[in-house]
Design a protein around this nucleic acid. Structure first.
Lengths: 189, 189
DNA sequence: CGCGACGTTGATTTGCCTCAACGATTGTGG
DNA sequence: CCACAATCGTTGAGGCAAATCAACGTCGCG
């Protein structure tokens, strides 16, 4: 089972423990373009992607969707600020492809960690890794121009670049679709 | 004791537990301008600021110092990518003021979490909070122009803006000292 | 087949950087 | 306690990366 394989990358877990853990989660199938979370609502859930791809975006004051994050298989996603404070969010989470996710509520996640120390350990490692990844991303903002950032990203995650539409990728990289197009076609020179 | 007060914001800890925890850490006094970590070295330590202020920076390909992060009282700091993989870092960590810090090595931190589940919980919460904060920061990058970002930051952390020299603040905010100066003096119009 | 979503191209504009020069302030040695 | 240098902040001229705006081509889908 996929989720067990994922957990085992971080902790040792036997079938008995797994049977205890699973009921805390709910499995959800989300068709492409459907929203899992919407701005203005309470942020109830933390989502884990089993299959497919999600994106998180907000709508800026000019009415443009700004995609700040993608999640593919084996990644967690939510608006963490809102999730942890159980407040309302400014983000949308939307399926980029037909997807299958696990969801867990804040209180369930907290309770699970209390009852199962290995899950406390699991989430500690997940957050630690995610934090380190975000720090890297912030460093890239200082290091690269937008053009360089695209080339870097394209070199590291070529499969992902193929996988999502270009205008979403552009938004995620913090540039306009027009400029991304220009960059890509510049290569020929 | 300061560190105990800090821990108690996240977990319940009695004196006996504290006595067990403390030996894992080393106390260090760092005079202003001194480096705790240097690019090219192995990243051995995670630093917790008891007093004073640290900054983390790297040197870009033009030779300019880019400050990516500050840490004041009750914040942790290290190059997490390098720390977790016990690799060499590209960052410097330098005292902005005369400072007092606690340090812990990667292996000690891991061992502490194994031996004391409450510390696993503590670090889980710390990473979780830090991760949420970084996600906010990334959202700001999409939301604000550099000028707006400065005003936002200045409105939220006026004391901190006073506390550090302007050219470090400029670097941290991702703009040049010249442009920050221009922004600040524009207000009069 | 026609419409809407997506990608491209080019002209123009702008936010912010670069470079250079100049005050102000600080600290340091004589 | 004063000169002198170094560090830091300011100002302005000029330039560039990337955005904006508008128009058009293309493809997939109902």
């Amino acid at each position: 089972m996929k989720f067990k394989n994922h957990l085992e990358k971080f902790i040792d877990v036997n079938d008995e423990q797994l049977a205890f853990i699973l009921p805390y989660f709910k499995r959800l199938e989300v068709p492409k373009k459907q929203n899992l979370m919407e701005a203005g609502q309470r942020c109830h859930s933390h989502y884990f992607v089993l299959e497919g791809c999600l994106r998180k975006f907000f709508i800026d004051d000019k009415g443009v969707e700004q995609t700040t994050e993608f999640a593919i298989e084996n990644w967690w996603m939510t608006d963490h600020r809102a999730f942890e404070n159980e407040e309302s969010t400014d983000f949308y989470i939307q399926a980029v492809e037909n997807s299958v996710v696990l969801t867990i509520s804040y209180s369930s996640q907290e309770q699970l960690m209390v009852e199962m120390p290995i899950m406390e350990r699991y989430f500690r490692k997940v957050y630690q890794r995610a934090f380190a990844a975000l720090q890297m991303k912030i460093k890239y903002n200082f290091t690269y121009s937008k053009e360089e950032y695209f080339h870097h990203f394209n070199a590291h995650y070529p499969a992902f670049v193929q996988r999502v539409p270009q205008y979403l990728l552009a938004s995620f990289l913090g540039l306009t679709p027009e400029y991304l197009s220009e960059i890509r076609n510049k290569k020929r020179s």
